[in-house]
Amino acid sequence: MILYDYVLSASCYKIRLMAALSGQKLELQAVNFHPAREHKSPEMLKLNPGGTLPILRDEDLIMTDSSDMLRHLTRNLPEWQGDDDGWLDFARTLNETLGMARLHDVLGFEVDIDAARKRGVHLLRLLEAHLTEQRFDGMIFLTGDTPTIADIACFPNTALAPDGGVSLDVYPSIRLWMRALRSLPGFIEMPGIHRLHELEAAE
């Protein structure tokens, strides 16, 4: 499988993370999203007329929607499947709000920044409320006590919210959820999302 990838993209990271956590190898094809806008080049538009990243190619199958990619990567892995549909939609709204606020702050995209942050905070409050109720039931992840593609879909844009000027300081359940995800075997980093240092051997 080939992932057309940009290292700073939250959506590309979702796919790299899912593959890493499930022990699947991806061939990464770096695309110069910024500043060269290579994803809009004729060659890339031939692959994905929508001109977006990531793109996942599995032989003749070409996927341009990150939710489709997460489903494809876990199609034979029932342990990564749960009641995911609503959360995959939720992840899309996170991308449209917190994700766009981050692209505004990091790459200078033109965005109604106040509206993006305000809607982002509203979504974080919904996420915090749900994760708090999950904790009341003794569960740490979105759909149960093990992670599914719902968690992987929602994690990157949530964890990167501070890059878009939205603080995560006031969401205890979100912090604990992110910590649980970062503790998973096979977890990989991206710029802005680091591993848990305390898991490293003390010097």
Binding site: D169, P172, S173, R175, L176, R179, E198
Partner: peptide, 15 residues
């Protein structure tokens, strides 16, 4: 805060 929100071995910001 609440003790249960800060597990052993963790640090959180507060203002």
């Amino acid at each position: 805060g609440l003790a249960e929100d800060i597990p052993v071995g963790t640090v959180v910001p507060r203002r």
